[in-house]
Design a protein around this nucleic acid. Structure first.
Lengths: 107, 107
DNA sequence: AGGATCCATAACCAGGAAGTTATGGATAAA
DNA sequence: TTTATCCATAACTTCCTGGTTATGGATCCT
């Protein structure tokens, strides 16, 4: 299977980083400066988080003059959705099996 | 909003721990010994991971004699699903807005 | 009862990760 | 051409976490 969820989980595990990503999802494209203003950490810290998010494919960057605009990358969460639904399907299947068993015992 | 996804992301970020959880989802209830056998780490390490998973509400434990059986807790992933779909809805809404804008510009 | 097995906890260690300050390169403004 | 702003990178520090071994309590077997 794809080792894809791993990087996503690791990247989204940090609250500060996840907050940055959430804000990009909510409000769309933002500059580093704008993100720094509300993040509660220093500008270099924000830059590092953005680097991590970018490496995980969660954001895109666009350079414009001396500022860099970052935006959330929609499809990037798909592996996460796939993983959760797969886990869900696993225990669903096991519930079905249990159901079957009970039915067979019933007759 | 609920700070719920935080603990989930942090707990599932570790590959070893996530592997244990995946196995419990796939194969159902398992003893600590059985989980240790295939985890690649020591028994105390497995016990600690199971403790973390339990604290996050991802697993349940059931004591039977001298062994402890662990099983995945289905609904525990719901906050994760909620979070992802919320993020998805955010950029969906923004795409809709863009669509509207383009339509207005068109006429 | 005595020995073996299963698991959890304690104590400790090492690596990584998130934060900081310092700095420099590139672009905009004066 | 200076000067100021924006961002990224480097260097360093601190702390958390995942791993280990050692140990002990509880239960099962002989």
């Amino acid at each position: 299977m794809a080792p894809a969820p791993d990087l996503l989980f690791r990247t989204l595990a940090d609250p500060t980083r996840r907050a940055i990503f959430e804000r990009l999802c909510r409000e769309g494209e933002q500059t580093v400066g704008a993100l720094t203003a509300t993040s509660g950490v220093s500008q270099p810290a924000v830059s590092k988080h953005l680097g991590a998010l970018k490496q995980a494919g969660l954001v895109r960057d666009r350079h414009e003059g001396r500022q860099t605009h970052y935006s959330a990358q929609p499809g990037a969460l798909d592996p996460l959705i796939d993983w959760t639904s797969q886990m869900a399907s696993f225990w669903q299947r096991r519930l079905d099996a249990l159901d079957d068993l009970l039915k067979r015992m019933d007759q």
